[in-house]
């Protein structure tokens, strides 16, 4: 089956880990992930700048690895992201910010991508806190 996973919560909530665990398990079971969509505080999962203390599970890194391994389409909602300081090089230049912060493998785009994903997927599963 084709899944879209919506993540509303920051990595500081277990809900973000649950989304990751669900995605991994669905892929292991042979399902397709049409899109990961990070929305509201969920965009913090796509930060390239977060540093996890040693000995703690690094969820943002884990997402990046999973996305690279399975070539997943991972989108961070652009309006949510800009507000929370998650910006790519293009937005950094446009708004004259000192640097980009969007993690590798993630793309900034609009809510239309969530509508598209809902149309294209058999199931939409949301994780919030």
């Amino acid at each position: 089956m084709k899944f879209t996973i919506v993540v509303y919560s920051a990595p500081s909530s277990q809900a973000a880990w649950s989304a990751y665990q669900f995605t991994r398990t669905a892929l292991d079971a042979g399902h397709e992930i049409y899109r990961l969509f990070f929305y509201a505080d969920g965009v913090l999962n796509s930060s390239a700048l977060s540093v996890t203390p040693q000995g703690e599970f690094d969820l943002t890194q884990a997402w990046q690895t999973l996305i690279a391994e399975h070539e997943l389409d991972a989108i961070s909602c652009v309006s949510s992201a800009l507000k929370r300081g998650i910006i790519d090089t293009q937005e950094a230049a446009r708004y004259e910010r000192p640097g980009a912060s969007l993690a590798a493998g993630m793309t900034l785009s609009g809510l239309g991508q969530l509508v598209d994903a809902t149309l294209a997927s058999d199931r939409v599963v949301s994780f919030g806190a």
């Binding site: 089956m1 809900a15 669905a26 949301s126 994780f127 919030g128």
Partner: peptide
């Protein structure tokens, strides 16, 4: 994951 497949939709309450 299997339960998500066998039900028509999933609604998350949080």
């Amino acid at each position: 994951v299997a339960l998500v497949c066998t039900h028509a939709k999933t609604v998350s309450w949080f």
